[in-house]
Each structure stands twice: as C-alpha cells, then as structure tokens.
Nucleic acid binder design. Structure first.
Lengths: 140, 140
DNA sequence: TTAGTATATTCGTCTAACTCGAAGTCAAGA
DNA sequence: TCTTGACTTCGAGTTAGACGAATATACTAA
C-alpha cells in the first residue's frame, strides 16, 4: 500500500507540512516517484508512529534522528538503543515530578482565590495579591 | 532596596537577557533612573517570583501579561484572576496525565529492550525493532 | 587628564519545530 | 484547453528567550 503526503498526514494525524519536514530532516527513508513526489508505505507508517511517540515524549528531532539512525543499523545497536531509552526514561520521570508540582501549585492558587472570594481572608491581609502575582511561589 | 538588572537577575536566578526581555514586554512596572537604566525594588522581586512560577507552569508570556495586567487593576479583577487560575489548573492536570503516560511508555520501552537483551524474545519475532522505532505506540 | 574596568543600553541575529503562504510544476477530468 | 487539485521548493513568521556587537555612562587609578 502506497500513500501520498496528504494521505499519510491524514492517516497519522500530522500535518502535511510536518510530514515534509520530517522527511527533509531524513528521520526515516522516503522514496520519490518519477515526478519527484514523496511516496510512503506501511513501513513509513511504522516509522511515523514511533517518531510521533518520541515527540510526544518531548524527545528533540535531533535525538530522534540519532535513535532512528541506530534503528536503521539493525540489531547491532540494540544495546545503544537500550541506553537511549534508559536516558529518556529518566527524563520522563523528572518531567512527571515537575508536572505534579505544577498541578499542586495551581490547586493552591485556585484555593487561594476561592478563599478570598468567600471573604475568609480580608483584603488587607494579603496585599501582594492586589498588585503582584507573587503569592505561593517556588515551582519548577 | 534597589537593584540593577545584574543584581536582580542574580537574586532571582534569571539571566539579564530574560529580565530585560520581561520588562520590554511590559509584564510588570519598571522604573528607569536618570541614565535610562532599569531600577528594581522588592516589589519587582514579588512580580518576578510570580512570573517565574507561571513560566515554570508552562504559561505563555502572553497569558502572563494578561494576568499581570489584571493584578495591576486591583481587587476588582479577583473573579477574573480566579477564572484564569481555574483554566491553568485544568491545563496542569492534563499535562500531568500526559506526563504519566509518557513515563509509562518509557518504562515499557526500556523493559522491551531488556527482554531482547536477555534473549527472552528471539530477534525474528520482533522485526519492527530492527528497522523502525514503531513498537509500543500511542502516547500523547 | 587619561585610560581601564565594569556596568548598562539598544539592536539585530540565532535557535527548535514547526506553521504558513507564495510561486511554480504536473497529471487528470470536463 | 482550461481548471482543479495535489504536489514541489523556498522563504518568512512563531515563542521565549540566548547571545554578541556597538555604544554610553560612571568609577577608579595613574
């Protein structure tokens, strides 16, 4: 099964621009037809699924290229790919912790405003909220 | 207590570039001395603490400006600021869910490579790992 | 007075990962 | 033949700064 840029963009939930961008960056092999048009197949779908996941995980295009190149080299690079993923796993755990902190901070802020609205805190007791956002700090 | 760009940058853990950028974007009031140099005080520290937190929460400069402008208008805008924070709270919760998914995905990937390395999965049973990253998809 | 040092200022360019639009190419259909 | 639609490349815009250069000001030492 062959796909055009438009078809694979639709199938993968990416824009045509993004598809072209990825192929221009040589993230994965991409053939051309006699009219110089990009031609994709089911293998391309596989590549794009993986790339999409890695992007969603916050991996940069540069690092994705490194990883994809390792994949292209075959089984010899499995230990390297393992290391790559271990590193990404660490990064993911750190981001998860940060996201948790941010969520806590927002919960605090919302609660804070709700207390003010319920008049539990008289205005003159929390002057900072009047003119600066600097209440309940230190996140990230 | 007054601070120069350099002093407040150091105090806040931001670069001088960033401080200048924030003042150029009019995120918060900033005075100038007779030599046109930026002058900061303890109120500025308050502003910057709040701004830093919001950035760490992934809030865009544009939205931070909206929020800071509301703060400058005083207590009348407390309901609006409450709404703003409710929205940010939702976004934070969504990002937390995503971060959790990403972490799970990475755990899966690492385990996958470790199984291959332990020879629990013969190579010819998982051909996709040889040439594409598309194994264990759908994140984000 | 002069030079050096340490700041500060603005301006302009660079980045990532797209996003968007323009201008041109190409084949198929009415 | 003309139009449509999809494709091509190229160049510029985006965000939130990072960074360097040229310039200006003030303080200090010789």
């Amino acid at each position: 099964m062959n796909y055009s840029v438009k078809e694979i963009a639709e199938k993968m939930g990416l824009t045509e621009h993004t598809i072209r961008y990825y192929t221009d960056q040589n993230l994965f092999p991409c053939k051309r037809d006699s009219n110089n048009r990009r031609v994709f197949d089911d293998q391309s779908v596989n590549w794009l699924q993986g790339i999409k996941c890695l992007r969603a995980c916050g991996v940069s295009i540069e690092d994705i290229k490194i990883y994809c190149d390792l994949c292209l080299e075959g089984d010899v690079t499995i230990p390297e790919r393992h290391q790559f993923m271990l590193h990404q796993q660490e990064l993911a755990q750190e981001r998860l912790r940060e996201a948790q902190e941010v969520a806590n901070y927002m919960d605090y802020k919302v609660k804070h405003y709700e207390e003010i609205l319920a008049n539990k805190i008289p205005d003159d007791m929390n002057p900072a909220t009047k003119e600066t956002p600097g209440v309940g700090k230190q996140v990230g």
